[in-house]
Design a protein around this nucleic acid. Structure first.
Lengths: 237, 237
DNA sequence: CGGACTTTTGAAGTAATTCAAGGGGAGTGG
DNA sequence: CCACTCCCCTTGAATTACTTCAAAAGTCCG
């Protein structure tokens, strides 16, 4: 399911690349070279992009669809590190050493990925410093995100953590609807639990309580935030 | 307490730079330039290097001594993100945007820091791609560290988390002594709590239990690990 | 319409926090 | 050198927030 860019499937236009976190503000002259070195890969919802422990052979940029990055313990417990949407990078390890992926990435929707080999992306970074600068910027941002989550996990009680998680998802994948802001990712209670550091039971109870107060309305794998301000006050108090 | 490199205080030799995470494998020709752009700053134990929210004006590399990076909540609760030792970077935000420091850094021992202005380090990165590559590598590594900690905080019970924390500190600042491996950082119960996501009380009780079993021996702000293997088995089970 | 997955909710159990009080070491100043 | 004070550490007891266990009800899909 991997093919060299040859037109046909998805036209990788320069505007798209310039909108990604890795290639923004790259000189126009470089875009062609970047494009020439790229491949494309389609993944269906539920399909694995790479597994934890796989050697980091390729770097991906999401063109369409959405991915999920996870970390799994030896005994099978999983946490969700992050969702990745259009323009975002999956497989950052490929940028640096010849290591292995420290976590897994799977598609939660059908997705189209643009990929580069480790050697190609390293060469591009070395030749075009703005790519390397972008990599530094987005890795710094993700490092910061994780710091914030660690602080939350360390100091906040579950309800606040769940509120923060939901608000982050609203930020990342919110879509206005008549009933409020819908999170445009299919999201089970278990998923929310793995993002908030709790159990699906506690998430279910918390959402039920919020639904009672009309703060959210939810269904099977679906959450719609009706009163984001109330949720914010739960998160911030 | 800031001065231009003029010899005298600390001779910033190329070997030192080549041993740091940011400047390793940089071509010898660049080292002089890097050095010329640097300043030095001494900080006494307990002194603040920069505060959370300060604008990111300088990047630091630790020459000697040890720093602590923290994140603080609006209501004053603190977590320790990391300790920084010789060769490590403090103030990574300076590498990317013109933002503010997302956390504070203070010295836990008297320390000597080498610093660069934001403009200088960005110019150096743009000119010498290997510096940018190193930045990508160490930020990737720190991002990974944080992911692991999130997984620990989300899935493990306190005793295991404290064990992991202590083992990490042994790795980072362990020093062989007659009684076992001593953690060469003054470390209160509160500090360990802020690294493990628990309270000083629980840390105290846990260490007391371990001391009972001769796994560790500890004093005021001091921890010596006698049986690292037992601690590992507590962490891994 | 069956079957798999997801969600809900009650009840019991418990790990860890919170509350509370006291002890001990290190440094300071008389 | 001793007393005083400031931290830091310890330990018990009470409380609680959350998990675990258990069962049932929904919901989607073929």
């Amino acid at each position: 399911m991997r093919r060299k860019t040859g037109g046909m499937d998805f036209h990788l236009n320069p505007e798209f690349l310039q909108g990604t976190e890795l290639f923004r503000d790259v000189p126009a002259a470089a875009l062609h070279e970047i494009q020439a070195a790229s491949s494309q890969r389609r993944v269906a919802a539920g399909q694995v992009v790479f597994r934890q422990g796989d050697s980091a052979a390729a770097l991906y940029v999401v063109a369409t669809g959405r991915l999920r990055a996870t970390q799994t313990t030896a005994d099978g417990q999983q946490v969700i590190i992050r969702y990745l949407g259009p323009g975002e990078v999956a497989g950052y390890t490929t940028l640096s050493g010849g290591g292995v992926h420290p976590g897994a990435v799977i598609a939660v929707e059908d997705a189209l990925l643009i990929s580069w080999t480790s050697a190609a992306i390293k060469r591009l970074m070395a030749e075009h410093s703005s790519i390397a600068m972008n990599a530094v910027a987005f890795l710094g941002a993700r490092y910061h995100e994780m710091q914030v989550r660690i602080r939350e996990l360390s100091t906040e009680k579950v309800e606040r953590r769940i509120a923060h998680t939901v608000l982050r998802l609203v930020e990342q994948a919110g879509r206005r609807t008549a009933r409020g802001i819908e999170i445009a990712i299919p999201l089970s209670r278990q998923d929310l639990a793995e993002m908030s550091g709790t159990t699906l039971h506690t998430v279910s109870r918390t959402l039920s309580a919020w639904e009672e107060q009309k703060i959210v309305s939810c269904g099977r794998r679906r959450v719609v935030v009706a009163k984001a301000d109330v949720l914010t006050s739960i998160a911030e108090v």
